[in-house]
């Protein structure tokens, strides 16, 4: 990874951080409804992994903490914000919301709100890729708590059995909603859990984007060269509660302080400053520019976009004018 890439990644991660923080404000202002699961603290995970993959070409699927994943795949941030505002211009036309961002054009195949639901969907997309013979891989990002669902075991078994081209990335943020991992899970090291399926795996520091990138290159290469699935565990931490309705009281303050010292953005920034590639002023300018862009372009777009029309309530339930519904004769 050269310096230009690192600077771009720093910018992308800072943008992701500021975008999510702005979502928080909009939620408090009641511009955004429903549930809102934010990503600050975990930015290095998706950015490091996707840097090693091909965003917009490889298929990506994830859970409900999905805004940043969609944008890293190429989704227009204005449309993501408009979706959170429930607008017709949103990425899912206001029908999905925060937990259901989709951008199929950029092969972001969706955020899903049932924990562990995407495991088999990812395997199925990999089955389709395998049948069609493309070079794509499927990348499934989920949290550590999803690994206690049956779909984790069922899907990894099938992925291994049929050598499906799927990379499972476990963003281990140590908590399943409010329950700490060692209170819910017999084996805390998640990468060890896939050994029973003969799937190669690794554990990496999820706060250091360069380390994530290096680990992901090995994982992506394994999957793309059609050697079967791979499981990559990234140790990370979310700064906010599970969702906006979570007071976050269950986490020791000392633990939060410790993780804040390993902030993925600050770590990369300081490394670039030490190497003489960036000044504090550069970083400050970058931040200001991002904040202005979010306000002037993204929020303005979401605010000024129209609501969906009530008369279109029942659109998208079923296919429109599908001839096979009538036996194909019309």
């Amino acid at each position: 990874m050269d310096v230009a890439d690192k600077k771009r990644l720093l910018r992308e991660m800072l943008f992701a951080r500021r975008f999510e923080e702005r979502c928080y404000e909009a939620y408090v202002e009641r511009k955004i409804g429903g549930f809102l699961h934010l990503y600050p603290g975990e930015e290095a995970c998706v950015h490091g992994v996707m840097e090693a993959a091909r965003p917009g070409f490889d298929y990506v699927i994830t859970g409900y903490r999905d805004h940043v994943h969609a944008m890293k795949c190429g989704a227009d941030p204005r449309k993501v914000m408009a979706e959170l505002y429930g607008k017709e211009t949103g990425s899912s036309k206001g029908r999905g919301g925060s937990m259901h961002i989709f951008d199929v054009e950029h092969r972001f195949m969706g955020g899903y709100a049932l924990v562990g639901g995407p495991f088999p969907l990812a395997a199925g997309m990999a089955k389709a890729v395998q049948m069609k013979g493309g070079e794509e891989i499927v990348i499934c990002f989920l949290g550590d708590a999803a690994n206690n669902q049956g779909t984790f075991h069922e899907s990894l078994n099938m992925a291994a059995l049929w050598k499906l081209p799927v990379l499972y990335v476990c963003e281990n943020n140590l908590y399943g909603i409010g329950t700490r991992i060692d209170r819910s899970t017999a084996i805390v090291d998640q990468y060890k859990r896939v050994c029973g399926y003969g799937i190669p795996s690794a554990q990496e520091d999820g706060q250091d984007v360069e380390k994530v990138y290096a680990a992901a290159r090995i994982a992506v290469e394994h999957v793309r060269s059609r050697q079967g699935p791979y499981f990559l565990e990234l140790l990370t931490y979310r700064y906010r509660g599970h969702s906006m309705s979570d007071s976050n009281a269950y986490r020791p303050k000392e633990e939060e302080r410790m993780w804040s010292k390993r902030d993925p953005i600050i770590m990369l920034r300081d490394r670039l400053i030490e190497a003489g590639e960036l000044t504090r002023e550069d970083f400050q300018d970058m931040d200001t520019e991002i904040l202005d862009y979010i306000e002037d372009e993204i929020i303005a777009y979401a605010e000024s976009s129209p609501e969906p029309k009530p008369e279109e309530l029942e659109r998208y339930v079923l296919a429109e004018n599908d001839p096979w519904v009538h036996g194909g004769r019309h």
Partner: peptide, 16 residues
């Protein structure tokens, strides 16, 4: 594993 093989089929259907 009914839930996951059904889900696998659904995922495959996303891509044609």
């Amino acid at each position: 594993c009914e839930n996951s093989y059904t889900g696998l089929g659904i995922g495959a259907s996303f891509l044609g």
